[in-house]
């Protein structure tokens, strides 16, 4: 009896099973709509680039055409122009080469620096780390003028080596700061244990710290590679010979001639590079995010 009274009293607060199902459906629908919106939002540029790549001029430029579909048969002419009449493959090669060399330089400098700042110098290390991060915040739009002097004096103008020299100036500070957070999150105990277990400090770093900092190292690789890929100002200011250009400059400077835009070729140039980068990014995304948030959580 008492139980029955109880249920009646509480009934207004408890949705019936049917009601709950409706709620769940409503929530599910809202979720699906949100996901759909952002998926389209993110994927649409890719679709646009892809479809434009194969469109003829008449198809693309007639205002009466439906822009979302092919109104005329697709063509490969734009790709032919891109590969046969520009240095596109050379630019890709340059970008990848610069990316790899800059990643190596960054690792070589940032890993020891981050370890030293995290472990060896105590409070001072932390402040120096923040200071290094500040360097990263100075925009290239200010730095490219003095840098340009340096490049000229070194005789590196119009050479990809100018970019290899300059890019580490922003990848190294940021990656050092990023790795510092990682190194700090690795307990000092573990490293000390390794030194008691018969290893030198260097041995301990290589065998214990490095494997544990692997997510951080991967983050650094992905981050500095993509950063060099999309860098624009230095590449524009220091290199004007076609064969030494990188992808970000080559496409924009040589596929826009005066007021003539080779839209289809620009689009194809973009998507050919964007898809592999997007795939790599997604494969490493979890680790990448972990890399950025780790320092924040475990300060």
């Amino acid at each position: 009896m008492a139980e029955k009274t109880d249920t009646r009293v509480h009934r207004p607060h408890i949705p019936s099973p049917a009601r709950r199902r409706v709620n769940r459906l409503g929530r599910g629908g809202f979720q699906a709509a949100t996901i759909a919106f952002f998926t389209i939002f993110a994927a649409f540029p890719f679709y646009w680039m892809l479809i434009a790549t194969f469109k003829t001029n008449q198809d693309l430029y007639r205002p009466l055409n439906n822009p979302f579909i092919f109104n005329q048969p697709p063509t490969l002419d734009n790709l032919k122009l891109l590969f046969n009449e520009t240095n596109y493959t050379v630019w890709i090669g340059n970008s990848i080469f610069i990316g790899i060399v800059v990643v190596l330089i960054t690792l070589l400098l940032a890993v020891p620096a981050a370890y030293a700042l995290a472990r060896l110098s105590g409070r001072l290390g932390e402040q120096l780390g923040i200071l290094m991060f500040m360097v990263y915040l100075i925009p290239p739009t200010l730095l490219f003028i003095p840098m340009s002097r340096v490049i000229t004096v070194l005789g590196l103008r119009d050479s990809i080596w100018s970019l290899i020299l300059v890019y580490p100036t922003f990848t190294v500070p940021f990656c050092t700061w990023l790795l510092m957070g990682f190194m700090k999150s690795i307990p000092a105990d573990i490293e000390e244990q390794a030194t008691v277990d018969g290893y030198t400090r260097f041995g301990a770093v290589v065998r214990v710290i490095m494997p544990l900092a692997l997510p951080g190292l991967l983050t650094v690789v992905v981050f500095s590679f993509t950063l060099t890929m999309h860098e624009f100002i230095y590449a524009l200011a220091f290199v004007s010979i076609s064969a030494q250009k990188v992808i970000s400059i080559g496409v924009t400077s040589e596929l826009i001639r005066g007021d003539v835009y080779f839209w289809q070729s620009i689009m194809s140039a973009g998507i050919i590079v964007a898809i592999p980068v997007a795939i790599i990014y997604n494969v490493f995304l979890d680790r990448f995010v972990a890399g950025f948030t780790l320092g924040a959580v475990k300060g």
Partner: peptide, 11 residues
């Protein structure tokens, strides 16, 4: 040989 309070096992 040392045993740390945290055990410091290599994860």
């Amino acid at each position: 040989a040392m045993v740390f309070q945290s055990y410091a096992l290599y994860p």
